[in-house]
């Protein structure tokens, strides 16, 4: 344990010291190497979600005449690339508003405050968030409470009489 004096008590030559120094460095270097070759795939796997490409696909959510003009309804669709074991989690909901014959707006259901699911009150024409009381008007703009931004919108289109929504990442309010 103690400094530089071997158990036998004899004094060491410079060569011996260099040899020990080399062996210490060798062990540290080899350990570092072994650690690295295992750590690379480990860390890579850990941060894999950050390396995946975002895929977006159009998903049909119902035929046009299913939605009356002036109403907002809940629609649901399957994510862009659901894993076989995802179960119900593969599905996402959106609030779909029909403003005119071919005018649709799809709102995210996630409150921009902290992501809780907003509910639509038909008579009041308001979206209400159960978590911290955020309120949005029917066009998604903030009516009251803590939300910092309007409800995000999904791209929406009409194809062959079907309303289609473009799957999108969970809207997260970020700061720059």
């Amino acid at each position: 344990m103690s400094s530089g004096v071997p158990a036998s008590g004899r004094s060491e030559g410079a060569e011996e010291i260099r040899r020990r120094d080399f062996l210490t460095r060798l062990c540290l270097g080899l350990s570092l190497f072994a650690g690295l070759i295992v750590a690379v795939p480990f860390v890579g796997f850990l941060i894999a979600p950050l390396l995946e490409r975002v895929v977006q696909v159009w998903r049909p959510v119902g035929s046009v005449d299913q939605f009356a003009v002036g109403t907002t309804s809940k629609v649901s669709f399957v994510d862009s690339s659901p894993l076989p074991w995802a179960g119900v989690v593969a599905r996402t909901a959106a609030w779909l508003r029909r403003d005119g014959p071919a005018q649709f707006v799809a709102f995210s259901v996630n409150c921009t405050h902290l992501g809780c699911p907003v509910r639509w009150l038909q008579d009041a024409e308001l979206f209400l968030c159960p978590c911290h009381g955020g309120v949005y008007y029917k066009d998604g703009t903030v009516a009251a409470g803590p939300p910092p931004k309007p409800l995000p919108r999904y791209p929406v289109r009409v194809r062959n009489g079907q309303v289609e929504i473009l799957t999108s990442p969970l809207p997260v309010t970020t700061v720059r």
Partner: peptide, 20 residues
């Protein structure tokens, strides 16, 4: 700030809830 989007992505393990 700045890295929040990436960390949110890391927490969700994707761009939304998923099998992961």
């Amino acid at each position: 700030p700045y890295i929040g989007g990436a960390i949110a992505h890391f927490v969700l393990a994707g761009d939304t809830w998923s099998g992961e």
